[in-house]
C-alpha cells in the first residue's frame, strides 16, 4: 500500500534518475557475478547468441542483386558470376585447408564462416570472432580453429548455431610452440612481458623454454596439447621477424608475425576431433 503511494509522487525527471541508478546497480551486480561465477551468466550469453547469430549469418551472406526492375536480368547474371567466383575461391581455400590438414593427423575439418568480430569499444580489449557453426554441427569448447594460412585460435563458447573463437594475441592466450629447425620448445603470448620493446598491433611474443637460440626467420608451429585439446600439434603459426636484445629475461624472447591476419578472417575451419572428449 505504501509502495503504491510512493510511485506516483515521483516526478518524471526524478523517476528517470531512480531508474538509471537501479539499472546501473543491476549492471554492476551482473558484472561482479560474471567475474566471480562466469557459469551463472553463461545462459544469458547463450540465449543472446541463439537470437543474434542467425541474423549475423544472414547479414554476412546478403547480396544485393536486384537493384532496379530495368537491370534485373543483368544483375541476376552478374550475381550468378559472382557466386560462381566465390564458390571457386571457397573451393580453392578448402583444397588448401585439406592439403594443410594432411599433416595434422587427418582430423576432420568443419568449414565455417566468420560472421561477427569483437567490438573495438568494450572496456576489456579482446580478440574474439563469432563463426556460423555451433553445437548442432559438432563444435565443442576448446577445439582448434585453423584457416588455410595457419592457426586462428580456439573455441571458447558455443551456442546451438554459433561459436565464439578467441584469436591468437587475445588476452590470456598462450600457445605452446616448437620453433626453429630443431623444434625447440617455447610459448607464444599476445602480451609481451614487462621490459620488452613495444610490439606493433598483431605481433606476438615468443619466449623460449630453456637455453635454445632463436634466429630471425625461424618457423613457429604449435606444440600440441594432450588429446589435442585445446591445440592440435604441428599447425603453422608464424615466423620470427626479430629477436629481442638480452635484458636479463629468463628465456630468450622474439617477435613473431602470425600467418593469420585476425582482421580479415573469412573462411575458417574447426578441427573436429575423433570422438567427443569430456
Amino acid at each position: 500500500m505504501t509502495r503504491r503511494r510512493l510511485l506516483p509522487r515521483l516526478s518524471g525527471a526524478r523517476a528517470t534518475q531512480v531508474l538509471l541508478t537501479a539499472l546501473v546497480g543491476l549492471t554492476v551486480c551482473v558484472l561482479l557475478v560474471d567475474l566471480a561465477r562466469p557459469a551463472v551468466t553463461a545462459p544469458v550469453r547463450r540465449s543472446a547468441a541463439t537470437v543474434f547469430a542467425p541474423v549475423q549469418a544472414a547479414m554476412t551472406g546478403w547480396t544485393d542483386d536486384r537493384l532496379t526492375e530495368v537491370t534485373r536480368e543483368r544483375d541476376a547474371l552478374d550475381a550468378r558470376v559472382k557466386e560462381l567466383e566465390a564458390e571457386l575461391r571457397t573451393s580453392g581455400q578448402l583444397t588448401e585447408l585439406e592439403r594443410a590438414a594432411a599433416g595434422w593427423g587427418g582430423h576432420e575439418l568443419l568449414p565455417a564462416r566468420v560472421v561477427g568480430f569483437s567490438s573495438g569499444s568494450t572496456p576489456v580489449g579482446g580478440r574474439t570472432v563469432t563463426i556460423d557453426a555451433g553445437e548442432l554441427d559438432g563444435v565443442r569448447t576448446d577445439q582448434t580453429v585453423v584457416s588455410s594460412d595457419g592457426l586462428v585460435g580456439r573455441v571458447v563458447r558455443t551456442a546451438p548455431t554459433s561459436a565464439d573463437v578467441v584469436l591468437l594475441g587475445g588476452s590470456d592466450v598462450v600457445v605452446g610452440v616448437r620453433f626453429g629447425d630443431e623444434g625447440a620448445l617455447g610459448s607464444v603470448d599476445g602480451r609481451p612481458a614487462p621490459g620488452l620493446p613495444a610490439r606493433a598491433s598483431g605481433q606476438l611474443t615468443l619466449t623460449a623454454v630453456g637455453d635454445s637460440m632463436i634466429s630471425v626467420g625461424d618457423p613457429v608451429t604449435t606444440l600440441g596439447s594432450p588429446d589435442s585439446i585445446p591445440y592440435v600439434a604441428g599447425i603453422p603459426l608464424g615466423t620470427v621477424t626479430s629477436v629481442d636484445p638480452d635484458r636479463g629475461q629468463l628465456g630468450r624472447t622474439a617477435v613473431v608475425e602470425p600467418f593469420v591476419d585476425g582482421d580479415s578472417l573469412d573462411l575458417v575451419a574447426v578441427v573436429l576431433l575423433g570422438e567427443e572428449v569430456r
Binding site: 560474471d34 569483437s118 567490438s119
Partner: peptide, 10 residues
C-alpha cells in the same frame, strides 16, 4: 551480448 560479445558481461 551480441556475439562474440564483451568480457566481463556489463
Amino acid at each position: 551480448l551480441v556475439p562474440p560479445g564483451g568480457e566481463p558481461l556489463g
